[in-house]
Design a protein around this nucleic acid. Sequence first.
DNA 1: GATACATCCTCTAGCTGCTAGAGGTTCAAG
DNA 2: CTTGAACCTCTAGCAGCTAGAGGATGTATC
Lengths: 142, 142
Amino acid sequence: MLTIGTLSKKTGTKVQTIRYYEQIGLMPEPGRTEGGQRRYDNAQLDRLSFIRHSRQLGFSLDAIRELLDLSDHPNRPCDEADAIARRQLKQVEQRMARLKALRTELKRMVHECSGGRTGDCKVLEVLRDHSECLTEHEEIGA
Amino acid sequence: MLTIGTLSKKTGTKVQTIRYYEQIGLMPEPGRTEGGQRRYDNAQLDRLSFIRHSRQLGFSLDAIRELLDLSDHPNRPCDEADAIARRQLKQVEQRMARLKALRTELKRMVHECSGGRTGDCKVLEVLRDHSECLTEHEEIGA
DNA sequence: GATACATCCTCTAGCTGCTAGAGGTTCAAG
DNA sequence: CTTGAACCTCTAGCAGCTAGAGGATGTATC
Protein backbone atom coordinates (compact mmCIF):
# COMPACT_ATOMS: atom_id res chain seq x y z
CA MET A 1 0.00 0.00 0.00
CA LEU A 2 1.57 3.19 -1.20
CA THR A 3 0.87 6.71 -0.04
CA ILE A 4 0.42 9.45 -2.56
CA GLY A 5 3.81 10.84 -1.57
CA THR A 6 5.52 7.56 -2.39
CA LEU A 7 3.76 7.41 -5.74
CA SER A 8 4.87 10.95 -6.34
CA LYS A 9 8.51 10.13 -5.70
CA LYS A 10 8.47 6.90 -7.69
CA THR A 11 7.03 8.50 -10.79
CA GLY A 12 8.33 12.02 -10.53
CA THR A 13 4.80 13.40 -10.56
CA LYS A 14 3.80 16.08 -8.08
CA VAL A 15 1.27 15.11 -5.45
CA GLN A 16 -1.11 17.81 -6.63
CA THR A 17 -0.86 16.53 -10.16
CA ILE A 18 -1.80 13.01 -9.11
CA ARG A 19 -4.90 14.35 -7.40
CA TYR A 20 -5.61 16.38 -10.51
CA TYR A 21 -5.41 13.25 -12.68
CA GLU A 22 -7.87 11.58 -10.36
CA GLN A 23 -10.18 14.56 -10.55
CA ILE A 24 -10.32 14.47 -14.34
CA GLY A 25 -10.79 10.71 -14.34
CA LEU A 26 -7.40 9.73 -15.70
CA MET A 27 -6.47 7.93 -12.50
CA PRO A 28 -9.04 5.78 -10.71
CA GLU A 29 -10.22 6.67 -7.24
CA PRO A 30 -7.88 4.83 -4.93
CA GLY A 31 -8.72 3.15 -1.65
CA ARG A 32 -8.63 5.22 1.51
CA THR A 33 -7.53 4.73 5.08
CA GLU A 34 -10.04 5.15 7.87
CA GLY A 35 -8.85 8.70 8.20
CA GLY A 36 -9.44 9.38 4.51
CA GLN A 37 -5.91 9.26 3.09
CA ARG A 38 -5.31 7.73 -0.34
CA ARG A 39 -3.57 4.36 -0.62
CA TYR A 40 -2.40 2.97 -3.95
CA ASP A 41 -1.40 -0.46 -5.26
CA ASN A 42 1.06 -1.47 -7.95
CA ALA A 43 -1.47 -1.43 -10.76
CA GLN A 44 -2.08 2.21 -10.04
CA LEU A 45 1.62 2.88 -9.92
CA ASP A 46 1.94 1.32 -13.38
CA ARG A 47 -0.91 3.40 -14.67
CA LEU A 48 0.63 6.60 -13.42
CA SER A 49 3.97 5.65 -14.95
CA PHE A 50 2.21 5.10 -18.25
CA ILE A 51 0.59 8.51 -18.03
CA ARG A 52 3.80 10.19 -17.03
CA HIS A 53 5.78 8.59 -19.79
CA SER A 54 3.17 9.47 -22.36
CA ARG A 55 3.23 13.07 -21.19
CA GLN A 56 6.99 13.09 -21.61
CA LEU A 57 6.46 12.00 -25.17
CA GLY A 58 4.15 14.95 -25.62
CA PHE A 59 0.79 13.18 -25.79
CA SER A 60 -2.18 15.24 -24.68
CA LEU A 61 -4.26 14.08 -21.75
CA ASP A 62 -7.05 13.26 -24.16
CA ALA A 63 -4.76 11.10 -26.27
CA ILE A 64 -3.53 9.41 -23.11
CA ARG A 65 -7.09 8.67 -22.12
CA GLU A 66 -7.53 6.82 -25.41
CA LEU A 67 -4.23 5.03 -25.09
CA LEU A 68 -5.05 3.88 -21.57
CA ASP A 69 -8.39 2.62 -22.73
CA LEU A 70 -6.72 0.63 -25.52
CA SER A 71 -4.18 -0.70 -23.11
CA ASP A 72 -7.00 -1.95 -20.91
CA HIS A 73 -8.43 -4.04 -23.77
CA PRO A 74 -5.64 -6.27 -25.07
CA ASN A 75 -7.82 -8.04 -27.63
CA ARG A 76 -8.73 -5.12 -29.77
CA PRO A 77 -6.76 -4.44 -32.93
CA CYS A 78 -4.01 -1.94 -32.28
CA ASP A 79 -4.47 0.26 -35.36
CA GLU A 80 -5.89 2.91 -33.20
CA ALA A 81 -2.95 3.14 -30.86
CA ASP A 82 -0.75 3.23 -33.88
CA ALA A 83 -2.80 6.06 -35.39
CA ILE A 84 -2.54 8.11 -32.22
CA ALA A 85 1.21 7.70 -32.17
CA ARG A 86 1.48 8.60 -35.85
CA ARG A 87 -0.60 11.71 -35.27
CA GLN A 88 1.72 12.69 -32.46
CA LEU A 89 4.75 12.08 -34.62
CA LYS A 90 3.31 14.32 -37.29
CA GLN A 91 2.70 17.07 -34.78
CA VAL A 92 6.23 16.83 -33.50
CA GLU A 93 7.57 17.09 -37.01
CA GLN A 94 5.47 20.14 -37.75
CA ARG A 95 6.62 21.84 -34.59
CA MET A 96 10.21 21.10 -35.45
CA ALA A 97 9.83 22.64 -38.87
CA ARG A 98 8.38 25.79 -37.39
CA LEU A 99 11.10 26.02 -34.79
CA LYS A 100 13.70 25.67 -37.49
CA ALA A 101 12.39 28.74 -39.30
CA LEU A 102 12.36 30.64 -36.05
CA ARG A 103 15.88 29.67 -35.24
CA THR A 104 17.08 30.94 -38.61
CA GLU A 105 15.43 34.29 -38.06
CA LEU A 106 16.59 34.67 -34.47
CA LYS A 107 20.14 33.79 -35.38
CA ARG A 108 20.18 36.38 -38.07
CA MET A 109 18.80 39.03 -35.74
CA VAL A 110 21.35 38.31 -33.09
CA HIS A 111 24.31 38.15 -35.43
CA GLU A 112 23.51 41.43 -37.04
CA CYS A 113 23.24 43.36 -33.82
CA SER A 114 26.27 45.56 -33.66
CA GLY A 115 26.06 46.49 -30.01
CA GLY A 116 25.22 50.17 -30.34
CA ARG A 117 22.14 52.05 -29.22
CA THR A 118 18.64 50.63 -29.25
CA GLY A 119 17.84 53.18 -31.94
CA ASP A 120 19.87 51.22 -34.48
CA CYS A 121 19.44 47.81 -32.92
CA LYS A 122 18.93 45.20 -35.60
CA VAL A 123 16.94 43.03 -33.25
CA LEU A 124 14.33 45.70 -32.67
CA GLU A 125 14.35 46.69 -36.29
CA VAL A 126 13.49 43.23 -37.45
CA LEU A 127 10.69 43.01 -34.94
CA ARG A 128 9.33 46.28 -36.22
CA ASP A 129 9.33 45.14 -39.80
CA HIS A 130 8.38 41.66 -40.76
CA SER A 131 9.44 42.25 -44.36
CA GLU A 132 13.03 42.00 -43.18
CA CYS A 133 12.50 38.33 -42.47
CA LEU A 134 13.79 35.80 -44.94
CA THR A 135 11.51 32.99 -43.93
CA GLU A 136 7.88 32.66 -43.16
CA HIS A 137 7.46 31.69 -39.57
CA GLU A 138 4.34 31.25 -37.58
CA GLU A 139 4.95 30.14 -34.11
CA ILE A 140 1.81 31.32 -32.41
CA GLY A 141 -0.09 28.45 -30.94
CA ALA A 142 2.78 26.01 -31.06
CA MET B 1 -8.47 56.91 -37.47
CA LEU B 2 -8.72 53.16 -37.45
CA THR B 3 -11.37 51.01 -35.86
CA ILE B 4 -10.39 47.96 -33.87
CA GLY B 5 -11.70 45.79 -36.68
CA THR B 6 -9.41 47.43 -39.21
CA LEU B 7 -6.48 47.01 -36.88
CA SER B 8 -7.45 43.41 -36.48
CA LYS B 9 -7.44 42.78 -40.21
CA LYS B 10 -4.24 44.69 -40.86
CA THR B 11 -2.26 42.80 -38.25
CA GLY B 12 -3.99 39.45 -38.25
CA THR B 13 -4.79 39.79 -34.56
CA LYS B 14 -8.26 38.98 -33.30
CA VAL B 15 -10.31 41.86 -31.95
CA GLN B 16 -10.58 40.19 -28.56
CA THR B 17 -6.86 39.78 -28.44
CA ILE B 18 -6.26 43.47 -29.08
CA ARG B 19 -8.56 44.33 -26.20
CA TYR B 20 -6.72 41.78 -24.11
CA TYR B 21 -3.39 43.43 -24.89
CA GLU B 22 -4.85 46.72 -23.80
CA GLN B 23 -6.13 45.18 -20.60
CA ILE B 24 -2.72 43.85 -19.62
CA GLY B 25 -1.05 47.14 -20.54
CA LEU B 26 0.78 45.98 -23.64
CA MET B 27 -1.22 48.29 -25.87
CA PRO B 28 -2.00 51.84 -24.70
CA GLU B 29 -5.55 52.96 -24.13
CA PRO B 30 -6.68 54.36 -27.45
CA GLY B 31 -8.90 57.36 -28.05
CA ARG B 32 -12.63 56.83 -28.12
CA THR B 33 -15.53 58.15 -30.13
CA GLU B 34 -18.37 59.94 -28.36
CA GLY B 35 -20.18 56.64 -28.30
CA GLY B 36 -17.23 54.93 -26.65
CA GLN B 37 -15.69 52.98 -29.54
CA ARG B 38 -11.91 52.67 -29.81
CA ARG B 39 -10.05 54.59 -32.52
CA TYR B 40 -6.40 53.96 -33.29
CA ASP B 41 -3.65 55.83 -35.11
CA ASN B 42 -0.67 54.58 -37.07
CA ALA B 43 1.69 54.55 -34.11
CA GLN B 44 -0.62 52.10 -32.45
CA LEU B 45 -0.83 50.03 -35.58
CA ASP B 46 2.96 49.83 -35.62
CA ARG B 47 3.03 48.84 -32.00
CA LEU B 48 0.57 46.04 -32.55
CA SER B 49 2.54 44.82 -35.56
CA PHE B 50 5.63 44.73 -33.40
CA ILE B 51 3.82 42.70 -30.77
CA ARG B 52 2.35 40.36 -33.32
CA HIS B 53 5.63 39.76 -35.04
CA SER B 54 7.40 39.16 -31.77
CA ARG B 55 4.75 36.62 -30.82
CA GLN B 56 5.31 34.84 -34.11
CA LEU B 57 8.95 34.60 -33.22
CA GLY B 58 7.93 32.98 -29.95
CA PHE B 59 8.67 35.77 -27.49
CA SER B 60 6.61 35.76 -24.33
CA LEU B 61 4.41 38.72 -23.54
CA ASP B 62 6.79 39.64 -20.75
CA ALA B 63 9.74 39.65 -23.11
CA ILE B 64 7.76 41.73 -25.55
CA ARG B 65 7.01 44.21 -22.83
CA GLU B 66 10.73 44.65 -22.31
CA LEU B 67 11.43 44.88 -26.01
CA LEU B 68 8.76 47.53 -26.48
CA ASP B 69 10.20 49.49 -23.63
CA LEU B 70 13.65 49.36 -25.18
CA SER B 71 12.22 50.31 -28.53
CA ASP B 72 10.68 53.38 -26.91
CA HIS B 73 14.09 54.57 -25.70
CA PRO B 74 16.41 54.74 -28.70
CA ASN B 75 19.38 56.12 -26.78
CA ARG B 76 19.93 53.27 -24.42
CA PRO B 77 22.54 50.67 -25.26
CA CYS B 78 20.97 47.72 -26.99
CA ASP B 79 22.73 44.93 -25.12
CA GLU B 80 19.53 44.18 -23.37
CA ALA B 81 17.48 43.68 -26.50
CA ASP B 82 20.26 41.52 -27.77
CA ALA B 83 20.24 39.48 -24.57
CA ILE B 84 16.50 38.90 -24.80
CA ALA B 85 16.84 37.68 -28.37
CA ARG B 86 19.74 35.41 -27.44
CA ARG B 87 17.74 33.96 -24.59
CA GLN B 88 14.91 33.27 -26.99
CA LEU B 89 17.26 31.64 -29.46
CA LYS B 90 18.60 29.41 -26.74
CA GLN B 91 15.11 28.35 -25.76
CA VAL B 92 14.24 27.55 -29.33
CA GLU B 93 17.35 25.44 -29.64
CA GLN B 94 16.58 23.57 -26.45
CA ARG B 95 13.07 22.87 -27.60
CA MET B 96 14.35 21.62 -30.92
CA ALA B 97 16.73 19.24 -29.21
CA ARG B 98 13.94 17.87 -27.08
CA LEU B 99 11.65 17.44 -30.03
CA LYS B 100 14.37 15.60 -31.88
CA ALA B 101 14.62 13.02 -29.11
CA LEU B 102 10.87 12.67 -29.11
CA ARG B 103 10.74 12.19 -32.82
CA THR B 104 13.29 9.41 -32.63
CA GLU B 105 11.29 7.61 -30.01
CA LEU B 106 7.95 8.05 -31.71
CA LYS B 107 9.33 6.87 -35.03
CA ARG B 108 10.68 3.76 -33.41
CA MET B 109 7.38 3.05 -31.71
CA VAL B 110 5.42 3.45 -34.87
CA HIS B 111 7.78 1.40 -37.03
CA GLU B 112 7.80 -1.50 -34.67
CA CYS B 113 4.08 -1.79 -34.41
CA SER B 114 3.17 -4.92 -36.32
CA GLY B 115 -0.53 -4.28 -36.58
CA GLY B 116 -1.82 -7.04 -34.35
CA ARG B 117 -3.77 -6.81 -31.11
CA THR B 118 -3.33 -4.08 -28.53
CA GLY B 119 -2.01 -6.78 -26.20
CA ASP B 120 1.22 -6.97 -28.20
CA CYS B 121 1.23 -3.44 -29.50
CA LYS B 122 4.70 -2.02 -29.44
CA VAL B 123 3.38 1.50 -29.04
CA LEU B 124 1.60 0.67 -25.83
CA GLU B 125 4.45 -1.47 -24.64
CA VAL B 126 6.91 1.37 -24.93
CA LEU B 127 4.58 3.70 -23.09
CA ARG B 128 4.30 1.14 -20.32
CA ASP B 129 8.03 0.79 -19.91
CA HIS B 130 10.33 3.73 -20.17
CA SER B 131 13.38 1.48 -20.10
CA GLU B 132 12.57 0.51 -23.67
CA CYS B 133 13.44 4.00 -24.75
CA LEU B 134 16.81 4.61 -26.33
CA THR B 135 16.94 8.30 -25.59
CA GLU B 136 16.21 10.46 -22.64
CA HIS B 137 13.35 12.73 -23.44
CA GLU B 138 11.58 15.20 -21.27
CA GLU B 139 8.96 17.13 -23.06
CA ILE B 140 6.75 18.18 -20.19
CA GLY B 141 6.58 21.91 -19.96
CA ALA B 142 7.86 22.56 -23.46
C1' DG C 1 -0.48 7.27 26.36
C1' DA C 2 1.35 11.78 24.92
C1' DT C 3 3.69 14.57 21.79
C1' DA C 4 5.89 16.15 17.71
C1' DC C 5 5.95 16.87 13.02
C1' DA C 6 5.87 15.15 8.34
C1' DT C 7 2.55 14.15 5.38
C1' DC C 8 -1.96 14.11 4.14
C1' DC C 9 -6.76 16.30 3.21
C1' DT C 10 -10.11 19.78 0.60
C1' DC C 11 -10.86 23.98 -1.48
C1' DT C 12 -9.96 28.02 -4.07
C1' DA C 13 -7.38 30.77 -7.01
C1' DG C 14 -3.65 31.55 -10.21
C1' DC C 15 -0.46 30.82 -14.29
C1' DT C 16 -0.04 31.84 -20.08
C1' DG C 17 -2.24 33.66 -23.89
C1' DC C 18 -5.83 33.90 -25.54
C1' DT C 19 -11.00 32.63 -27.21
C1' DA C 20 -16.04 32.42 -27.05
C1' DG C 21 -20.43 33.92 -25.88
C1' DA C 22 -24.25 36.70 -23.74
C1' DG C 23 -26.63 40.73 -23.92
C1' DG C 24 -26.62 45.26 -25.28
C1' DT C 25 -25.04 49.82 -27.99
C1' DT C 26 -23.15 52.59 -31.85
C1' DC C 27 -21.96 53.76 -36.50
C1' DA C 28 -22.45 54.41 -41.39
C1' DA C 29 -24.81 53.42 -45.55
C1' DG C 30 -29.02 53.70 -48.11
C1' DC D 1 -35.08 56.60 -40.18
C1' DT D 2 -34.07 52.05 -40.51
C1' DT D 3 -31.10 48.28 -40.98
C1' DG D 4 -27.33 45.46 -39.92
C1' DA D 5 -22.50 45.02 -39.28
C1' DA D 6 -19.40 46.11 -36.06
C1' DC D 7 -18.64 47.68 -31.69
C1' DC D 8 -19.00 47.60 -26.28
C1' DT D 9 -18.40 45.19 -21.39
C1' DC D 10 -18.40 41.28 -18.70
C1' DT D 11 -17.82 36.57 -17.44
C1' DA D 12 -16.24 32.09 -18.11
C1' DG D 13 -13.54 28.71 -20.42
C1' DC D 14 -9.36 26.13 -22.66
C1' DA D 15 -4.69 22.95 -21.24
C1' DG D 16 -2.24 21.21 -17.64
C1' DC D 17 -0.99 21.98 -13.99
C1' DT D 18 0.81 24.68 -9.45
C1' DA D 19 0.55 27.12 -5.04
C1' DG D 20 -1.33 28.25 -0.76
C1' DA D 21 -4.64 28.44 3.18
C1' DG D 22 -6.28 26.11 6.95
C1' DG D 23 -6.90 21.98 9.04
C1' DA D 24 -6.73 16.55 9.89
C1' DT D 25 -4.05 12.20 10.02
C1' DG D 26 -0.34 8.87 10.61
C1' DT D 27 3.76 7.31 12.63
C1' DA D 28 7.93 7.48 15.33
C1' DT D 29 9.73 8.40 19.68
C1' DC D 30 9.61 9.08 24.57
